[in-house]
Computed example of a mutant assay.
Amino acid sequence: MTRVTGDWIKMPAAQAVCEMIAQAGHQVYFVGGCVRNDLLGAPISDLDLSTDARPEQVIKIADEAGMRAVPTGVDHGTVTIVVDGHGLEVTTFRKDVETDGRRAVVAYSDRLEDDAHRRDFTMNALYAAPDGRVIDPLGGLADLKARRVRFIDNPGDRIREDYLRILRFFRFHAWYGDAAEGMDAEALAGVAANLGGLETLSRERVGAEMLKLLAASDPSTAVGAMAQIGVLGSILPGADPRALPVLVHLEAQRAPDPLRRLAALGGGEVADRLRLSKRDRKRLALMRDAMGSTEGAGELAYRHGANLATDVVLLRAAQTGGQVHAGVWSEVETGAQAVFPIQPADLLPTHTGPALGAELRRLESLWIASGFTLKREDLLP
């Protein structure tokens, strides 16, 4: 029998919630990402519980046990129980009654199997009892072992329940799939038949999903498949995935940076189409502008900082398919630490007004061209 064995399932807060619900006569299981990632040996960030108890019952049970219950998503069957500073989401078994591709009308159920069938991929329909025993109602264990991302039942039906599942399919393949084995053919056919549904999604949801996808260790296979099947062009017209695998290679030993990878894809109106935050918009614009400038690595670091210069060095090399020469990083470090030795007062009264600004720019250009080596006395007459 397969079991999950991570320390997370032994957490006193998690076990206390499970015991509380079970003692009230209800089923309770861990579900989804915590079970999947435990079996993969991947990090676990959130613990989710699934139960046949209705939300109002969960709240009543928690109140009687002296635990705090917060109706964080009670309309969707979710209650968050807070124990010792830990919040655990407890969601009632559900089954879909009606969907329109963006939201579903659901009914509560007493059966774990109903709950499993409304999930997206078989690897996400794995449950674990409080003692660690894994319950696999839909064959997710075999798919997980093979690192095969497979829709539950008919892919087209699952996609039409929520068109964001198109992007989730590629994201999950990037994170958990076996690139060497390729993608599930039925899933790709379902995606191709439902591309129009992407237009119904909010830009915020698309943007969040794309950034999660690009944060995978190597998303290039998934993004390449998105381009071939028409998904990438639908959400980012003009985007080109060819530089992405080169960038991923050049990024070796660096943490994955989804925004840098987004810059490598190109395309028009990216910030608007993905509804990026103001901070991300600014950084993306800086990267894309600097990629096309004539500024060297040192000057970029001097004007914008070492991080932006590093981004641009890698992006330029990825675009050309070239390598990054070892000396460029010392240029970046030097530029980031450089301080222009001339102050406006040094040029007064000989230069004033617009002439002062022009002279400062001229001297700064000479100083940058020297590799930041010219000193104050070298620049002043």
Rank of each mutant, 00 (worst) to 15 (best):
G85V: 06
G87F: 03
L88P: 05
V90E: 06
T92Y: 00
F93Q: 02
D96S: 11
E98L: 14
E98D: 10
T99M: 01
R102S: 07
R103G: 03
R103M: 10
A104I: 11
V105T: 14
A107N: 02
Y108K: 01
Y108W: 14
S109V: 04
D110R: 11
R111K: 14
L112G: 03
D114N: 06
R118D: 06
R118G: 05
R118L: 04
R119D: 05
R119H: 03
D120R: 01
F121A: 02
T122Q: 04
N124K: 04
L126H: 01
Y127C: 04
A128Q: 07
A129P: 00
A129G: 00
A129E: 15
A129T: 08
P130D: 05
G132V: 01
R133N: 02
R133V: 11
D136V: 02
P137R: 04
G139A: 08
G139S: 06
G140E: 07
G140M: 07
G140C: 09
L141R: 01
L141Q: 03
A142R: 08
A142V: 10
D143I: 01
L144I: 02
L144N: 07
L144M: 05
A146K: 11
A146Y: 05
A146L: 10
A146T: 00
R148Y: 00
R148T: 02
V149E: 09
V149W: 06
V149I: 15
R150A: 14
N154Q: 13
P155I: 12
G156S: 15
G156T: 12
D157P: 00
E161H: 11
L164D: 08
F169H: 12
F169Q: 05
R171S: 13
H173V: 10
A174E: 08
W175C: 00
Y176M: 06
D178T: 04
A179L: 00
E181Y: 00
E181V: 06
M183W: 09
A185C: 01
A187H: 07
A189Y: 00
V191K: 10
V191C: 13
A193T: 06
N194V: 02
L195H: 09
L198D: 07
L198T: 09
L198K: 10
E199R: 15
T200G: 10
S202C: 01
R205H: 14
V206T: 15
G207Q: 09
A208F: 12
M210Q: 08
K212H: 13
L213D: 08
L214N: 12
L214I: 12
L214Q: 08
L214S: 05
L214V: 12
L214K: 09
A215K: 14
A216P: 11
A216H: 13
A216E: 10
A216W: 12
S217N: 13
S217C: 01
P219H: 12
S220P: 12
S220Q: 11
